[in-house]
């Protein structure tokens, strides 16, 4: 029973591949959004550090992979690794700035750093293409075999495979003693040091880990769409990520998957009607989630499913 529940999202994702062959780009964007949401869940949901600037790492990863491919190195897997490395370094550099001061000042620092990076990419048009975006990204076949096709088959399966691997790595990490210490810090940051938990070091590692995840998500977007725009770094992306996270349920990795899927599908359906309409209902959803509880969709599911399933 439990094994089946754990397999369910992935079976659904594979079924979608066969059932919705015209919607593969949408499905890819769900997988990428899910990975981004997992990254936010690690830092916000588990470690308890609220950030308004996670898009900085997503964008850094996207531009890293995009620039590599644009400049003649289109090998996708090494592109992902490079993106992860750049995002990790950026995370390690900025973590002390974010964690140094109190929660509120740290929150604003994440916002400021995110905007700084956006503005830097905007002004560095000769390298990034500025507002026109990064053109001429050419990605080689995955593993030298699977060419990125027009229908997005390779793009989807590639994104899904990366999500699958990193999702289970995240599952492992949150269940480890390290993951437990993050939950302890989140629950009571003043008590944790009295148990000998080195709070700063643990949070720095979590921040960098989440940055790496976001960087890989950004790189996936760059590689599967062969394009990077400033949107990758935008405040909107950070805010969307937070919404996907709370929509699915904070501190639950399956929630991150569900939230990303629900959000992306709703976005697809509503913004076709009108972008203003979408923005309005997005705002209403945020307000409702903030006022009426954090469980999100995962919280609802937990009430319906047997105890212990999917945490």
């Amino acid at each position: 029973m439990r094994v089946l529940l754990h397999a369910l999202p992935w079976l659904a994702a594979i079924a979608a591949y066969f059932l919705m062959p015209e919607q593969l780009p949408l499905l890819s964007s769900i997988a990428i959004a899910a990975l981004f949401t997992v990254s936010l869940d690690l830092i916000v949901g588990y470690a308890g550090v609220v950030t308004l600037g996670q898009a900085a790492f997503f964008g850094a990863g996207a531009y890293t992979a995009g620039l590599l491919a644009q400049n003649g190195w289109g090998e996708p897997l090494s592109g992902l690794l490079a993106a992860a490395a750049v995002a990790t370094v950026l995370g390690l550099i900025t973590a002390p700035l974010v964690l140094r001061s109190g929660a509120l000042a740290g929150l604003m620092v994440t916002l400021g750093l995110g905007l700084m990076l956006y503005e830097a990419a905007n002004k560095a048009a000769p390298i990034t293409g500025g507002a026109d975006g990064l053109q001429g990204v050419e990605v080689w076949p995955v593993l030298g075999v699977f060419r990125f096709d027009l229908y997005g088959q390779t793009a989807y399966l590639y994104s899904l495979a990366v999500l699958f691997i990193l999702f289970w790595l995240a599952k492992l990490i949150v269940a480890s003693p390290y993951g437990l210490s993050l939950r302890g810090i989140n629950g009571n940051p003043r008590r944790a040091p009295a148990l000998g938990v080195p709070v700063k070091a643990r949070l720095t590692a979590a921040y960098a880990l989440a940055a790496a995840y976001a960087g890989v998500a950004g790189a996936l977007l760059a590689q599967t769409t062969a394009f990077v725009s400033l949107d990758a770094l935008s405040f909107q992306r950070s805010a969307d990520g937070l919404l996907m996270l709370v929509l699915g349920g904070l501190g639950s990795l399956y929630g991150a998957l569900i939230g990303a899927a629900a959000f992306t599908l709703a976005h697809h359906a509503l913004s076709e009607a009108s972008p203003i309409f979408w923005q309005f209902w997005l705002g209403i959803a945020l307000i409702a989630l903030a006022l009426f509880g954090r469980g999100g969709l995962m919280g609802l599911l937990r009430k319906l499913l047997p105890r212990g399933a999917g945490s």
């Binding site: 509120l104 937070l242 309005f280 705002g283 209403i284 945020l286 307000i287 989630l289 954090r294």
Partner: peptide, 23 residues
């Protein structure tokens, strides 16, 4: 309430008011 709730709420309010203004 904690900061995440306040952040979500106020971003939501910005979106709603922006959408209304746009409309």
């Amino acid at each position: 309430r904690d900061h995440l709730d306040q952040v979500l709420f106020s971003i939501g309010l910005v979106f709603v008011m922006g959408a209304v203004a746009d409309w």
